[in-house]
Amino acid sequence: MTRKQPDSTTDANAELHMARRGLLYIISSPSGAGKTTLARRLLAADRNIAMSVSVTTRPARPGERDGVDYRFVDADGFESMKERGELLEWARVFDNHYGTPRAPVEAAILAGKDVLFDIDWQGAQQLSEKMPGDVVRVFVLPPSGPVLEERLRVRAQDSPETVARRMAAASSEISHWPEYDYVIVNSDLETSVNSALAILTAERLKRARLLGLSAFVRDMRAVL
């Protein structure tokens, strides 16, 4: 009888019930390159990874929900979280602040759950310094400069002045690509999604993350 293969949403070692340490999957890109869309598709395709909900001082955009897309706080509240050590990382992006709450991320990692981050290079650097063995860093590049500008204009969420400012910042942001483990050129969304999923599968199989591997091999050898 042919054994049924697990679907694409199945964790790599779920059938073995092997203990695994979770990972922090970071996706960064200049604004408009597609990291948010890619992150949403990754969440939809794999039920074993959850989005990290960042805290931010920027106003909510149409359709965004507090506690789901972001936790929206004022500047004083954000500063208080920093002072109490409640943020793993934080950064100022244009005129607003963004940060990652510490407690839910650390709890997820210890429980063997994966956490997805849609953050910039500053946040990626800080997470890499604090949790170096847990991070997987993916940088998303646009296929070209003109395509990036067109994407920013089409999404119609920002003023022409903001679009120009984001384009001016893109070159500096892109210069940080060598700091990442993987690079995806987002010219075709489906191809990019498949690449992101392949990275996730490979990283879950890394020996250092499989906490139950030694016991599994020991038990196997005992009956050989």
Rank of each mutant, 00 (worst) to 15 (best):
V73A: 00
A75N: 08
A75G: 09
D76I: 06
D76C: 06
G77M: 01
G77W: 01
F78I: 02
F78R: 00
S80A: 14
S80E: 15
S80H: 14
M81S: 05
M81N: 01
M81W: 03
K82Y: 10
E83W: 04
R84E: 12
G85R: 00
G85W: 00
L87T: 02
L87E: 03
L88Y: 05
L88R: 02
E89H: 06
E89V: 10
W90H: 08
W90D: 10
W90Q: 06
W90Y: 08
A91E: 11
A91G: 06
R92E: 13
V93F: 09
V93L: 03
V93K: 04
V93H: 12
F94Y: 13
F94I: 06
D95L: 10
D95H: 08
D95Y: 04
N96E: 12
N96F: 13
H97Q: 15
H97V: 09
Y98A: 00
G99M: 01
G99D: 04
T100Q: 07
T100R: 09
P101Y: 04
P101I: 02
R102G: 03
R102P: 01
A103H: 12
P104Y: 02
P104A: 02
P104M: 03
E106N: 12
A107P: 13
A107E: 15
A108M: 05
A108I: 04
A108N: 07
I109A: 11
I109N: 10
I109P: 05
L110S: 15
G112N: 05
G112V: 07
K113T: 13
D114H: 13
D114L: 09
V115D: 07
V115W: 11
V115L: 07
L116T: 05
L116N: 07
L116G: 06
L116S: 04
F117A: 08
F117Y: 11
F117T: 03
D118S: 05
D120V: 13
W121M: 14
W121N: 15
W121L: 13
Q122H: 15
G123Q: 04
G123D: 01
A124L: 06
Q125T: 15
Q125M: 15
Q125D: 15
L127Q: 02
S128Q: 13
S128F: 12
E129H: 14
E129F: 13
K130E: 14
K130R: 14
P132N: 02
G133E: 08
G133A: 11
D134K: 14
D134G: 15
D134F: 13
D134N: 14
V135S: 07
V136P: 06
R137L: 11
R137M: 06
V138L: 06
V138C: 09
V138N: 08
V140L: 03
V140Q: 07
L141C: 13
L141M: 13
P143G: 05
S144P: 09
S144N: 04
G145T: 12
G145E: 11
P146L: 01
P146I: 01
P146F: 00
P146S: 02
V147K: 10
V147W: 15
V147Q: 12
V147P: 04
L148G: 05
L148P: 06
E149A: 07
E150C: 08
E150H: 11
E150R: 10
E150A: 09
R151I: 00
R151N: 00
R151C: 00
L152M: 10
R153F: 02
R153C: 05
V154E: 12
V154N: 10
R155H: 03
Q157G: 12
D158L: 01
S159T: 12
S159Y: 10
